[in-house]
Structures are given as C-alpha cells and as structure tokens.
Simulated scan of single mutants.
Amino acid sequence: MFREKPAGLQRVKKRIVLTENNMKVELFIPCFIDQCFPQTALNTVKVLENLGCEVIYNPQQTCCGQPAFNSGFWDEAKEVGQKFLNDFSEEHYIVCPSASCAGMIKNYYTDLFLNSAAHNKCRTVQQNMYELSDFIVNVLKKDAVGASLKGRAVYHSSCASLRECHLKDEPLRLLKNVEGLELVDLPHADTCCGFGGTFAVKFESISTAMAQQKIDNVMSREVEYIISTDVSCLLHLQGYIDKHHLPLKTLHIADVLVGKA
C-alpha cells in the first residue's frame, strides 16, 4: 500500500506562481528525497518558481520503481511504474531533482512497457522527463539563477547523471555562476562513489572502499563542499564523512541554487 506524502509537500501543489511565460511543470519528488531530504524537495520548488515556472505537484505520487527493477523484480517494478504513469500527464515537462530516478524513467521504462497498453504514454512521459539541472540549462536556457554560496567546492558527477542522463556540462555551468563559489576540479570525477543502491548493502566493504577513494580525492583539493545531483550519493558520502569526522559537507544542487547562503 502506497504511503501518502507528508503535508509539507502536499502544500506544494497550491503554491502557484503565475508569470509572464507561465510555463507549467510537473514535479516528481523521489521517495528517497521525500523521506530523508524534504527540504531539498521544497528548494527544488523554489528554484523552479524563481525561474518563472508554475509548479504542479500531485501528492499521490510515490516511487519510480527503481529499487524493485534493480533487484530483478520487474513485475513489481512495472506495477509501481504504471502508477507513476497514471500520476503524471502527457501535457507538461516533468522535473525531478534526481538523475538516478530521471534516468530510470527515461531509459528503463522502455523495457518495462514494451508492447504494453501504456507504451505510447510511456514514450511521451520519457520525452517530457528532465533532471533539474538539465531542465534549467536545456529547456529554460539559463546558466545563472542568481544564487550565492561562499566557499570552495567540488562537483561529484553521479553515475546516473553522467551515464544515464548524459549530463556533464549542465550542472557545472550552473555552479560556475553561483556567486562566491569557487568550483575546483575533482580528480577522477567520473568514478563511482560506491553507493549503487542495494550494492552498498550487498557489498559493504567494496562500497566503503570506493567512498574512501572518492573522499580522499576530495580532501586533496582542500574544499568545504561536495555538490551533486543525487542525494543518494551524498548520503553515502556524508556517512563516511561523519564517521571519520572530516571537515566536509555535502549539498544537493537544488540546495545551492535556491538562493542566498
């Protein structure tokens, strides 16, 4: 049985901003963000509204089905995926603050709904699906959003953003225009952090070693922040940081772009 979204996010659908462009976007908040990082969800709304979008939020939405899909339970993943298709329309762009979940929908729904009655709607939804930075740069045509953050940071390119959503320059273009932020190159930036969903549970020692390698590279750059498009990676890295009492903080890109810091 699907859980209802917290009241804080239910109020999002009432926060309508009518603008000159009046571009309507539907917001997909992954279950991981909903349960663990609700402020990132609200910051995503603020970023989109600041850029002149009318944000539509359906509080009945739940999960994209990725956990079941990656674990081999395709029938269960299809059931969850069908609910996702029912919860979103074909009329608007769909924006998600997670490259991992956006990549699941854009790529793997093709396998789930091939030769099914939902195939045509699936294809339309896939075309409308965008990760947040992808949408800002490639649809809204914005490189700067008026945000500021004082400090030095590296950008962690998640496997999903790089390999499934094919995002490389988009997040960097936005971050380079954040006032006060010094963006530093990260050695082996395209190397996995070790999270990988259930991989971190099944192969804990390997996952931890990969996180150590990533953090060692970050520490070599003498920065204060690690920024990424995926909170799952950041949660994994922050856990390693906290355990070893390191002077680092992880931030989702929406939390950086939301405004003044």
Rank of each mutant, 00 (worst) to 15 (best):
F73K: 14
Q66K: 08
F88I: 00
Q66M: 09
D134Q: 06
W74R: 13
S89R: 14
A117C: 12
Y108A: 12
C101V: 03
K142A: 08
A77W: 04
E91I: 03
Y108R: 11
G81L: 01
T124C: 13
Y109L: 06
A102I: 03
N86K: 13
F73W: 06
Y108M: 13
V137S: 14
S71M: 02
C101G: 04
Q126Y: 02
N115S: 09
M129W: 02
P97A: 09
S133N: 12
K121P: 01
K83C: 05
C122R: 02
F88K: 12
A117P: 13
F69T: 14
E79M: 07
E79N: 07
C101D: 10
W74L: 12
Y130F: 06
H119C: 03
Q82S: 12
E90F: 02
G146Q: 07
P97R: 01
L140F: 04
L149I: 01
I94V: 13
N138W: 02
A77L: 00
T110E: 15
Q66Y: 10
K150R: 14
G146N: 06
I94D: 15
P67K: 00
A153N: 03
M129Q: 04
F88N: 03
D143A: 11
A153F: 00
L132S: 04
K78G: 08
S148P: 06
D87W: 01
C122G: 03
D75T: 07
H119W: 05
K78H: 03
V95K: 03
L132N: 05
K106A: 06
L149C: 02
V80N: 15
K142M: 05
F69I: 13
R152A: 06
K83F: 04
N138D: 14
Y93C: 14
